Simulated assay, not measured.
Amino acid sequence: MPFTTQRKVRFQHCDPAGIVFYPRYYEMLNSVVEDYFAERVGHDFNRLHVEARTGVPTAHIETDFHAPSRLGDTLTFELTLRDVGRTSLTLRTVAHCSGEPRLTCDSTLVYVDLESGRPLPWPEAMRTYFAKDCQQG
């Protein structure tokens, strides 16, 4: 089942024409991932980054922009797990507004040690959760 959340397009997201400036979508996408980890996985970014000194940087990202989003739009983001590896997680995130597709993003996150920057195997509890979430997606 996809993780679903919404974001309102604010002035800060827009260029002078009043449409979302594409780098701002990446900030929104990252906030969706952060919410997924906090709300579904039970490991908010404070726990990951500050307490465990681990992180989930993006190693690959590919995005198709289907239509512009405008100031005041409410975007619905649906994040689905596509695959879980030993140290990585592959996601697809789709954003739409009133049923109209706005973007599709495929990305790969890697679980890393923040001190060394080296990949780490997922903790068993997280890996088990991801595997279950992949089967439901």
Rank of each mutant, 00 (worst) to 15 (best):
T80Q: 14
T80A: 15
E51C: 05
A67E: 15
T54C: 14
L79W: 06
N46P: 01
E62A: 14
S69C: 10
E51W: 02
A59R: 09
E39K: 14
P57D: 10
D64C: 07
G42D: 15
G72S: 10
T80P: 05
L75D: 00
L75V: 08
A59K: 07
A52Q: 11
R70D: 01
T74Y: 04
F77N: 03
T63I: 14
E51L: 12
R47C: 08
D83G: 04
D64N: 12
V50N: 13
N46K: 12
L81Q: 02
E78V: 09
F65G: 05
A59E: 02
N46H: 14
D73H: 10
L48T: 00
P57M: 09
L48N: 00
G42M: 15
L71A: 01
I61Q: 05
E78H: 12
T76C: 06
T80G: 12
D73F: 02
F45A: 04
P68K: 04
G55H: 05
D83K: 14
F77G: 04
G42V: 15
D64A: 12
S69A: 14
A59W: 02
V84M: 09
F65D: 04
H43K: 08
L79I: 10
T80M: 13
D44G: 10
T63R: 00
A67H: 15
A52G: 03
G42C: 14
H60G: 02
G72R: 12
V50E: 11
L48A: 03
A52R: 11
L79T: 04
D73I: 01
V41D: 14
A52W: 09
T58L: 02
L48W: 00
V84H: 09
R70K: 14
E51I: 08
V56K: 07
F77W: 10
D73W: 01
I61E: 07
S69G: 13
G72E: 04
V56F: 07
